[in-house]
Amino acid sequence: MTQQLLVELQDVSVKAKSRQVSEGVFLLQCIDLSIRQGEWISVLGMNGSGKSTLCKLLAGIHPFEISGAVLVGAEGKRSDILPGAAPIVMQHPDAGLIGSTPWEDVVLMLERHGFPEKEIINRAEEALYEVGLGERLHQKIETLSGGQKQLAAIAGCLAVAPSMLLLDEPTAMLDAEASAYVLSRVRRLHESGVTVVWVTQLVEELNALDRVLLLDKGRIVFDEPAHHLFSGGESGQSPGEHYGFVPPYGVQAARELMNRGIVLKPMPINRRELEQAVKHYGS
Protein backbone atom coordinates (compact mmCIF):
# COMPACT_ATOMS: atom_id res chain seq x y z
CA MET A 1 0.00 0.00 0.00
CA THR A 2 2.39 2.63 -1.17
CA GLN A 3 -0.24 4.46 -3.10
CA GLN A 4 -1.05 7.99 -2.15
CA LEU A 5 -3.76 8.50 0.41
CA LEU A 6 -6.66 10.48 -1.03
CA VAL A 7 -9.13 10.70 1.82
CA GLU A 8 -9.28 9.51 5.36
CA LEU A 9 -12.39 9.53 7.49
CA GLN A 10 -11.89 9.06 11.23
CA ASP A 11 -14.89 8.24 13.35
CA VAL A 12 -17.15 10.29 11.13
CA SER A 13 -20.86 10.41 11.88
CA VAL A 14 -23.41 12.18 9.75
CA LYS A 15 -26.83 13.45 10.74
CA ALA A 16 -29.53 15.01 8.61
CA LYS A 17 -29.68 18.76 9.06
CA SER A 18 -32.68 20.36 10.64
CA ARG A 19 -35.81 20.77 8.50
CA GLN A 20 -35.01 17.65 6.51
CA VAL A 21 -37.44 14.77 6.75
CA SER A 22 -35.12 12.56 8.70
CA GLU A 23 -33.94 15.33 10.99
CA GLY A 24 -31.59 14.24 13.73
CA VAL A 25 -31.34 10.65 12.53
CA PHE A 26 -27.84 9.30 12.06
CA LEU A 27 -27.34 8.57 8.38
CA LEU A 28 -23.81 7.33 8.91
CA GLN A 29 -22.17 6.35 12.17
CA CYS A 30 -18.57 5.93 13.28
CA ILE A 31 -17.14 5.64 9.80
CA ASP A 32 -13.43 4.86 9.65
CA LEU A 33 -12.25 4.74 6.10
CA SER A 34 -9.23 5.57 4.03
CA ILE A 35 -9.18 5.61 0.27
CA ARG A 36 -5.96 5.38 -1.71
CA GLN A 37 -5.11 6.37 -5.23
CA GLY A 38 -6.06 3.72 -7.78
CA GLU A 39 -8.32 1.65 -5.55
CA TRP A 40 -11.58 0.07 -6.63
CA ILE A 41 -14.10 0.24 -3.82
CA SER A 42 -17.46 -1.45 -4.11
CA VAL A 43 -19.97 -0.08 -1.65
CA LEU A 44 -22.62 -2.69 -1.00
CA GLY A 45 -25.77 -2.34 1.06
CA MET A 46 -29.54 -2.61 1.10
CA ASN A 47 -31.86 0.37 0.61
CA GLY A 48 -31.42 2.96 3.31
CA SER A 49 -28.12 1.59 4.53
CA GLY A 50 -26.32 4.88 3.94
CA LYS A 51 -24.63 4.16 0.60
CA SER A 52 -25.79 7.34 -1.09
CA THR A 53 -24.96 9.43 1.95
CA LEU A 54 -21.42 8.07 1.94
CA CYS A 55 -21.18 8.88 -1.75
CA LYS A 56 -22.37 12.44 -1.20
CA LEU A 57 -19.98 12.86 1.70
CA LEU A 58 -17.09 11.83 -0.54
CA ALA A 59 -18.34 14.14 -3.27
CA GLY A 60 -18.32 17.10 -0.94
CA ILE A 61 -22.05 17.66 -1.28
CA HIS A 62 -23.54 17.51 2.12
CA PRO A 63 -26.56 19.02 3.60
CA PHE A 64 -25.52 17.15 6.73
CA GLU A 65 -24.20 17.72 10.20
CA ILE A 66 -20.83 16.04 10.40
CA SER A 67 -18.79 15.03 13.40
CA GLY A 68 -15.38 13.38 13.43
CA ALA A 69 -12.33 14.09 11.32
CA VAL A 70 -12.07 14.25 7.56
CA LEU A 71 -8.46 14.24 6.39
CA VAL A 72 -7.63 15.01 2.82
CA GLY A 73 -4.55 14.38 0.68
CA ALA A 74 -1.19 12.83 1.45
CA GLU A 75 -0.34 15.34 4.16
CA GLY A 76 -3.59 14.61 5.91
CA LYS A 77 -4.92 18.14 5.86
CA ARG A 78 -7.86 18.43 8.16
CA SER A 79 -11.04 19.54 6.49
CA ASP A 80 -14.70 19.49 7.35
CA ILE A 81 -15.74 19.43 3.74
CA LEU A 82 -14.01 17.64 0.92
CA PRO A 83 -12.64 20.18 -1.49
CA GLY A 84 -12.34 19.67 -5.22
CA ALA A 85 -15.74 18.07 -5.00
CA ALA A 86 -16.01 15.02 -7.23
CA PRO A 87 -19.16 14.77 -9.34
CA ILE A 88 -21.40 11.72 -8.85
CA VAL A 89 -22.96 9.61 -11.57
CA MET A 90 -26.51 8.94 -10.43
CA GLN A 91 -29.11 6.26 -11.15
CA HIS A 92 -31.40 7.98 -13.60
CA PRO A 93 -29.69 8.10 -17.01
CA ASP A 94 -31.72 11.07 -18.20
CA ALA A 95 -31.65 13.21 -15.13
CA GLY A 96 -28.09 14.44 -15.18
CA LEU A 97 -27.60 15.18 -18.86
CA ILE A 98 -28.39 18.66 -20.09
CA GLY A 99 -26.61 18.79 -23.43
CA SER A 100 -28.43 17.44 -26.45
CA THR A 101 -25.35 15.48 -27.52
CA PRO A 102 -22.65 13.83 -25.39
CA TRP A 103 -20.18 16.41 -26.66
CA GLU A 104 -22.34 19.35 -25.63
CA ASP A 105 -22.97 17.83 -22.25
CA VAL A 106 -19.34 17.34 -21.36
CA VAL A 107 -18.41 20.79 -22.67
CA LEU A 108 -21.13 22.35 -20.53
CA MET A 109 -19.93 20.41 -17.51
CA LEU A 110 -16.35 21.63 -17.97
CA GLU A 111 -17.57 25.19 -18.39
CA ARG A 112 -19.57 24.99 -15.20
CA HIS A 113 -16.52 23.69 -13.40
CA GLY A 114 -14.57 26.68 -14.63
CA PHE A 115 -11.85 25.00 -16.66
CA PRO A 116 -9.55 27.14 -18.79
CA GLU A 117 -11.47 27.94 -21.96
CA LYS A 118 -8.80 26.72 -24.35
CA GLU A 119 -8.58 23.25 -22.77
CA ILE A 120 -12.26 22.49 -22.66
CA ILE A 121 -12.93 20.99 -26.06
CA ASN A 122 -9.85 18.77 -26.04
CA ARG A 123 -10.58 17.55 -22.57
CA ALA A 124 -14.21 16.82 -23.41
CA GLU A 125 -13.38 14.83 -26.51
CA GLU A 126 -10.62 12.91 -24.76
CA ALA A 127 -12.98 11.86 -21.96
CA LEU A 128 -15.65 10.79 -24.43
CA TYR A 129 -13.15 8.68 -26.37
CA GLU A 130 -12.00 7.14 -23.13
CA VAL A 131 -15.46 5.82 -22.23
CA GLY A 132 -15.97 4.53 -25.77
CA LEU A 133 -18.29 7.21 -27.10
CA GLY A 134 -15.76 8.55 -29.58
CA GLU A 135 -17.99 7.59 -32.49
CA ARG A 136 -21.01 9.23 -30.97
CA LEU A 137 -19.79 12.66 -29.97
CA HIS A 138 -22.54 14.46 -31.83
CA GLN A 139 -25.29 11.89 -31.72
CA LYS A 140 -28.52 13.13 -30.19
CA ILE A 141 -28.92 12.12 -26.57
CA GLU A 142 -32.39 10.68 -27.09
CA THR A 143 -31.07 8.20 -29.64
CA LEU A 144 -28.54 6.78 -27.18
CA SER A 145 -29.33 3.71 -25.11
CA GLY A 146 -29.55 3.92 -21.33
CA GLY A 147 -26.06 2.50 -20.99
CA GLN A 148 -24.60 4.98 -23.45
CA LYS A 149 -26.27 7.83 -21.58
CA GLN A 150 -24.64 6.66 -18.38
CA LEU A 151 -21.30 6.53 -20.18
CA ALA A 152 -21.83 10.11 -21.34
CA ALA A 153 -22.46 11.11 -17.73
CA ILE A 154 -19.33 9.21 -16.69
CA ALA A 155 -17.31 11.01 -19.36
CA GLY A 156 -18.47 14.33 -17.91
CA CYS A 157 -17.28 13.29 -14.47
CA LEU A 158 -13.94 12.01 -15.81
CA ALA A 159 -13.34 15.19 -17.76
CA VAL A 160 -13.27 17.34 -14.66
CA ALA A 161 -10.44 15.12 -13.36
CA PRO A 162 -11.82 14.39 -9.92
CA SER A 163 -9.70 12.65 -7.30
CA MET A 164 -12.06 9.70 -7.68
CA LEU A 165 -14.95 8.54 -9.84
CA LEU A 166 -18.11 8.24 -7.75
CA LEU A 167 -20.95 6.12 -9.12
CA ASP A 168 -24.13 5.82 -7.10
CA GLU A 169 -25.89 2.71 -8.41
CA PRO A 170 -25.25 3.66 -12.04
CA THR A 171 -26.77 0.39 -13.24
CA ALA A 172 -29.93 0.39 -11.14
CA MET A 173 -32.11 1.57 -14.01
CA LEU A 174 -30.36 -0.32 -16.79
CA ASP A 175 -31.09 -3.76 -18.15
CA ALA A 176 -28.63 -6.59 -17.71
CA GLU A 177 -26.72 -6.05 -20.94
CA ALA A 178 -26.34 -2.34 -20.55
CA SER A 179 -25.29 -2.81 -16.94
CA ALA A 180 -22.60 -5.25 -17.91
CA TYR A 181 -21.40 -2.90 -20.63
CA VAL A 182 -21.16 0.10 -18.31
CA LEU A 183 -19.46 -1.97 -15.63
CA SER A 184 -16.87 -3.32 -18.05
CA ARG A 185 -16.13 0.18 -19.30
CA VAL A 186 -15.61 1.49 -15.78
CA ARG A 187 -13.42 -1.52 -14.99
CA ARG A 188 -11.27 -0.56 -17.92
CA LEU A 189 -11.01 3.01 -16.64
CA HIS A 190 -9.90 1.62 -13.29
CA GLU A 191 -7.18 -0.44 -14.96
CA SER A 192 -5.85 2.77 -16.45
CA GLY A 193 -5.46 4.20 -12.96
CA VAL A 194 -8.75 5.87 -12.03
CA THR A 195 -9.89 5.52 -8.42
CA VAL A 196 -13.43 4.19 -8.46
CA VAL A 197 -16.15 4.09 -5.83
CA TRP A 198 -18.92 1.87 -7.22
CA VAL A 199 -22.13 1.75 -5.20
CA THR A 200 -24.38 -1.22 -5.83
CA GLN A 201 -26.95 -3.59 -4.42
CA LEU A 202 -25.96 -6.39 -6.75
CA VAL A 203 -23.39 -8.90 -5.57
CA GLU A 204 -22.97 -10.20 -9.11
CA GLU A 205 -21.24 -6.91 -10.01
CA LEU A 206 -18.36 -7.51 -7.60
CA ASN A 207 -14.96 -8.90 -8.53
CA ALA A 208 -13.26 -11.25 -6.11
CA LEU A 209 -10.43 -8.82 -5.40
CA ASP A 210 -12.54 -5.69 -5.02
CA ARG A 211 -12.41 -3.97 -1.70
CA VAL A 212 -15.98 -4.21 -0.46
CA LEU A 213 -17.49 -1.83 2.05
CA LEU A 214 -20.67 -3.39 3.33
CA LEU A 215 -22.95 -0.83 4.90
CA ASP A 216 -25.72 -1.70 7.28
CA LYS A 217 -27.82 0.89 9.10
CA GLY A 218 -25.24 3.57 8.49
CA ARG A 219 -22.25 1.59 9.71
CA ILE A 220 -19.46 -0.10 7.84
CA VAL A 221 -19.82 -3.71 8.92
CA PHE A 222 -17.37 -5.29 6.48
CA ASP A 223 -14.29 -3.84 4.81
CA GLU A 224 -12.43 -6.69 3.10
CA PRO A 225 -11.88 -8.17 -0.35
CA ALA A 226 -15.05 -9.46 -1.97
CA HIS A 227 -13.95 -13.10 -1.91
CA HIS A 228 -14.21 -13.04 1.88
CA LEU A 229 -17.81 -11.91 1.66
CA PHE A 230 -19.19 -15.40 1.23
CA SER A 231 -16.43 -17.42 2.78
CA GLY A 232 -16.33 -18.69 6.32
CA GLY A 233 -18.11 -21.75 7.50
CA GLU A 234 -21.32 -23.26 6.29
CA SER A 235 -23.69 -21.40 4.02
CA GLY A 236 -25.74 -18.86 5.89
CA GLN A 237 -22.80 -18.08 8.17
CA SER A 238 -20.82 -15.81 5.88
CA PRO A 239 -20.91 -12.03 6.40
CA GLY A 240 -22.67 -11.53 3.06
CA GLU A 241 -25.50 -13.87 3.93
CA HIS A 242 -25.69 -12.52 7.46
CA TYR A 243 -26.61 -9.14 5.99
CA GLY A 244 -29.15 -10.59 3.61
CA PHE A 245 -27.27 -11.05 0.33
CA VAL A 246 -27.84 -14.21 -1.71
CA PRO A 247 -24.60 -15.84 -2.89
CA PRO A 248 -24.24 -15.38 -6.66
CA TYR A 249 -23.86 -18.28 -9.07
CA GLY A 250 -20.07 -18.18 -8.96
CA VAL A 251 -20.04 -18.55 -5.20
CA GLN A 252 -22.61 -21.33 -5.20
CA ALA A 253 -20.65 -23.27 -7.78
CA ALA A 254 -17.35 -22.71 -5.95
CA ARG A 255 -18.93 -23.99 -2.75
CA GLU A 256 -20.17 -27.10 -4.46
CA LEU A 257 -16.71 -27.68 -5.88
CA MET A 258 -15.21 -27.17 -2.44
CA ASN A 259 -17.49 -29.87 -1.08
CA ARG A 260 -15.89 -32.15 -3.64
CA GLY A 261 -12.38 -31.25 -2.64
CA ILE A 262 -11.70 -28.66 -5.30
CA VAL A 263 -10.78 -25.29 -3.83
CA LEU A 264 -10.76 -22.30 -6.15
CA LYS A 265 -8.67 -19.42 -4.85
CA PRO A 266 -9.64 -16.69 -4.51
CA MET A 267 -13.27 -17.65 -4.38
CA PRO A 268 -14.91 -16.49 -7.64
CA ILE A 269 -17.85 -14.13 -7.27
CA ASN A 270 -19.24 -13.57 -10.74
CA ARG A 271 -19.62 -15.98 -13.62
CA ARG A 272 -16.70 -14.66 -15.59
CA GLU A 273 -14.38 -15.30 -12.66
CA LEU A 274 -15.80 -18.78 -12.21
CA GLU A 275 -15.09 -19.53 -15.83
CA GLN A 276 -11.52 -18.23 -15.51
CA ALA A 277 -10.91 -20.14 -12.30
CA VAL A 278 -12.15 -23.37 -13.83
CA LYS A 279 -9.99 -22.86 -16.91
CA HIS A 280 -6.85 -22.27 -14.91
CA TYR A 281 -7.48 -24.81 -12.20
CA GLY A 282 -4.50 -27.11 -11.77
CA SER A 283 -2.47 -25.42 -14.47
Binding site: I88, G96, M109, E111, R112, I120
Partner: peptide, 25 residues
Amino acid sequence: LAENMADALEARGFGVQRKKPVYGF
Protein backbone atom coordinates in the same frame (compact mmCIF):
# COMPACT_ATOMS: atom_id res chain seq x y z
CA LEU B 1 -38.43 13.61 -12.52
CA ALA B 2 -37.62 17.27 -11.88
CA GLU B 3 -36.40 16.43 -8.41
CA ASN B 4 -34.16 13.70 -9.79
CA MET B 5 -32.83 16.16 -12.30
CA ALA B 6 -32.09 18.80 -9.68
CA ASP B 7 -30.32 16.20 -7.54
CA ALA B 8 -28.29 14.93 -10.44
CA LEU B 9 -27.28 18.42 -11.52
CA GLU B 10 -26.17 19.25 -8.02
CA ALA B 11 -24.26 15.98 -7.81
CA ARG B 12 -22.50 16.88 -11.05
CA GLY B 13 -21.38 20.21 -9.70
CA PHE B 14 -23.81 22.50 -11.52
CA GLY B 15 -24.92 24.08 -8.27
CA VAL B 16 -21.84 26.25 -7.95
CA GLN B 17 -22.41 29.79 -9.21
CA ARG B 18 -19.49 31.35 -11.04
CA LYS B 19 -18.88 35.06 -11.13
CA LYS B 20 -17.60 35.01 -14.66
CA PRO B 21 -19.05 32.46 -17.05
CA VAL B 22 -16.56 30.24 -18.86
CA TYR B 23 -17.07 29.50 -22.54
CA GLY B 24 -15.06 26.58 -23.87
CA PHE B 25 -17.04 26.72 -27.07
